[in-house]
Amino acid sequence: MALSIESPGNATVSSPSQYLTFELGDEMFAVGTLNVREIIEYGPITSVPLLPPSIRGVINLRGAAVPVLDLGVRFRGERTVQTSRTCFVIIEVQASTLRKPVGIIVDAVSEVLEIAEQDIEPSLNFGTDVRADFLLGIGKLESGFVLLLDIGRVLSLEHVDALVNLESPQPSTA
Rank of each mutant, 00 (worst) to 15 (best):
I39R: 02
I45T: 03
G152T: 01
N125W: 10
N35G: 11
P53Y: 05
I45R: 06
L61I: 01
G137T: 03
A64F: 05
I55R: 01
D129Y: 11
E6Q: 14
K140M: 04
D161T: 08
R37Q: 09
E121H: 13
L3F: 13
Q170S: 14
P16K: 06
S84T: 10
F29A: 06
Q82G: 00
L98I: 00
Q94F: 11
V81P: 06
P101S: 07
P122C: 07
F75K: 00
K100G: 02
E78T: 09
P49E: 03
A2N: 15
V13A: 15
V36G: 00
S15R: 14
G43F: 08
V164Q: 14
G25W: 07
I104S: 05
N165L: 10
L69D: 00
N165E: 13
G25V: 03
G43V: 04
F22L: 10
I59Y: 00
S84D: 03
T83W: 05
F29I: 11
L135Q: 01
P53I: 00
V130A: 05
Y19Q: 13
L50D: 14
P44K: 10
L166A: 08
P8T: 13
P101V: 02
G139I: 02
L135R: 04
I115V: 12
P101C: 06
P101T: 03
E92H: 11
N125H: 12
I120M: 08
P16M: 09
T83Q: 02
A174H: 15
V58W: 08
L155A: 04
R74S: 01
A162I: 05
D133V: 14
S110I: 12
P16W: 09
L163T: 03
M1L: 11
Q170D: 11
L135S: 06
G137P: 04
A95P: 09
S172M: 15
D70K: 00
L148C: 02
L98Y: 14
E23K: 14
G139T: 02
V48A: 02
E78A: 05
P44H: 13
L157H: 11
L136P: 08
I55F: 06
T173I: 14
R74I: 02
S123L: 07
R85S: 06
G139E: 00
Q82S: 01
P122M: 07
S47F: 10
P53E: 07
A11D: 12
G152L: 05
E142T: 04
S14Y: 11
I55M: 11
P169M: 12
H159G: 08
V31R: 02
V58N: 01
I55L: 10
L124V: 11
I5S: 15
F145N: 10
L141A: 03
P8D: 12
S143Y: 05
L51F: 09
L50E: 11
P49M: 07
A108G: 09
P171I: 14
L163S: 05
E23F: 14
Y42S: 02
D133L: 04
K100W: 09
Y19R: 15
F29N: 08
A11E: 14
S96Y: 13
N125M: 10
A2I: 06
Q18E: 15
L149A: 03
R79H: 08
C87D: 03
N60F: 03
L149F: 01
E167K: 13
G63K: 02
E167M: 13
G144R: 04
F145L: 12
N165H: 15
V130K: 04
E38W: 00
S7F: 13
E41H: 12
R79G: 06
S7H: 14
V146S: 03
I45L: 08
L113V: 12
D119L: 10
V66P: 06
P169F: 14
